[in-house]
Amino acid sequence: MSTESTIWKVLEEVKDPEVPVLSVVDLGIIRDVKQTENGAEITITPTYSGCPAMDVIAMQIRMVLAGHGYAPVTIRTVLSPAWTTEWMTETGKEKLLAYGIAPPNPKQQVCTPDFFQQEEAVQCPHCRSFHTRRISEFGSTACKALYQCEDCKEPFDYFKCH
């Protein structure tokens, strides 16, 4: 196994503090990994500009890599290209669904700025009905919107397409 793929494997241990079933690799925010002499250089991109989890994530990446003997660990942040939910892994989407959060729809369906535009068919993570409605564009964190299932009546978070 090459050294860089070892680092990718180690990064799987770092979870998003707000959505703890997702690793930073699942989330698609690790943009580059480089092995240096004894350490590592990791390039990350934020999900949202103001996401408070980013500082915690950077710290956890340092700690986990240090725990595996990497020193020094350098973390670079890049903004462009801007993060998109397209970069979330399929495994990540399955983990979200199992956790009770509806995973992001594919990009082509949504993301228009038109007023009162509804996303197509966000599936209820509990009963799998497509008969759902958006309660609020903004949810408990910047990356989520609040939905309710019209069939099982359960409210749920939707990890919104971005």
């Binding site: 500009s49 103001g50 996401c51 309660i135 609020s136 903004f138 408990s140 609040l146």
Partner: peptide, 20 residues
């Protein structure tokens, strides 16, 4: 509650943009 969360999220986006 929903709009409290919405405007707070918008504030967070803007302060994040300001930081950049």
């Amino acid at each position: 509650l929903e709009q409290d969360i919405a405007i707070s999220n918008i504030a967070l986006d803007q302060i994040g943009q300001a930081r950049n």
